[in-house]
């Protein structure tokens, strides 16, 4: 697909990476960009472990049995994280930390803004929050009048609109090379790989970091799901097709 000079594009640092947004240029594009980046910033403020008063930081300080009030967005991410935990036999676990016991099964979701911590946990939404941010950035773009576009948060991306978009994946052992995996319409693509040691993959079964030369690319209807599923696919490559199909998604593994 030839590059279209009619596209408006922006990129800003966010979520620890570069977030890139592209829409066909239109009168409301500047506002659409601002709203979409604001949605990404909101996810960062709510779910980053580094932000002192984020929902995640407060969950990680909570005593056993405590009820913690969280933003509805955080609650939604935790809900999806627990669903994917169940769907992957525990291979995705937002509360599986090295050297600690506990899993996302140890937190309960109450009404739509409260979490009960059954024990002290170290919760990290790093493996799912980027995808959620992308989904909400897309929603903000749509509400602001964009009829098509792409949001790409450091490689977790979602395409919306009528036109199919080509997607390339970095080769895991040769990051300057891009492998075309085809065309996506109205869907999300997320990839996990080590890319020379940039990311840490914790195996919830052993609580240890796993090294791999593979990359897992998940294609799903939404980026929250795609993002979360990449890790289980890397941890159990043989089960990857079944794990993704069970969540209405597909996977491409590269080595």
């Amino acid at each position: 697909m030839k590059p279209r000079s009619r596209d408006a594009r922006r990129a800003r640092p966010a979520l620890g990476t570069l977030v890139e947004i592209r829409v066909p240029d239109f009168a409301g594009a500047a506002t659409a960009f601002d709203r979409a980046f604001a949605a990404v910033e909101r996810v960062h403020r709510l779910m980053s472990r580094q932000v002192p008063d984020s929902d995640v930081a407060r969950l990680n300080r909570a005593a056993p049995g405590a009820l913690v009030a969280v933003d509805h967005w955080t609650w939604q991410v935790l809900k999806r994280a627990k669903e994917i935990h169940a769907a992957t036999g525990g291979l995705f676990d937002c509360a599986a930390a090295p050297g600690k016991n506990g899993s996302s099964a140890d937190l309960d979701l109450i009404d739509d803004r409260t979490v009960r911590m059954r024990r002290q946990l170290v919760v990290s939404l790093d493996g799912i929050a980027k995808g959620f941010a992308v989904d909400h950035a897309v929603e903000a773009l749509r509400l602001a009048g964009a009829r098509a576009g792409v949001v790409n948060a450091g490689g977790d991306l979602r395409v919306f609109g009528e036109e199919a978009q080509t997607v390339h994946v970095r080769h895991p052992r040769d990051p300057g090379c891009f492998v075309s995996i085809g065309m996506v319409t109205d869907g999300a693509v997320a990839t996990s790989a080590r890319y020379f040691g940039n990311s840490t993959l914790i195996d919830p079964r052993s609580r240890r970091a796993r090294r791999t030369d593979w990359s897992a690319t998940v294609i799903a209807g939404d980026c929250t799901t795609a993002d979360a599923l990449t890790k289980p696919c890397l941890l159990d490559r043989r089960a990857a097709p079944a794990l993704t199909a069970g969540c209405g998604a597909r996977v491409v593994l590269l080595h």
């Binding site: 030839k2 590059p3 620890g16 790409n152 991306l157 080509t166 990839t191 020379f196």
Partner: peptide
């Protein structure tokens, strides 16, 4: 002639920025 524009898979953090 394919424009490489939708790349999945990240290699950088925004730490430098």
């Amino acid at each position: 002639d394919d424009d490489i524009r939708n790349i999945s898979g990240a290699t950088l953090s925004c730490r430098h920025v």
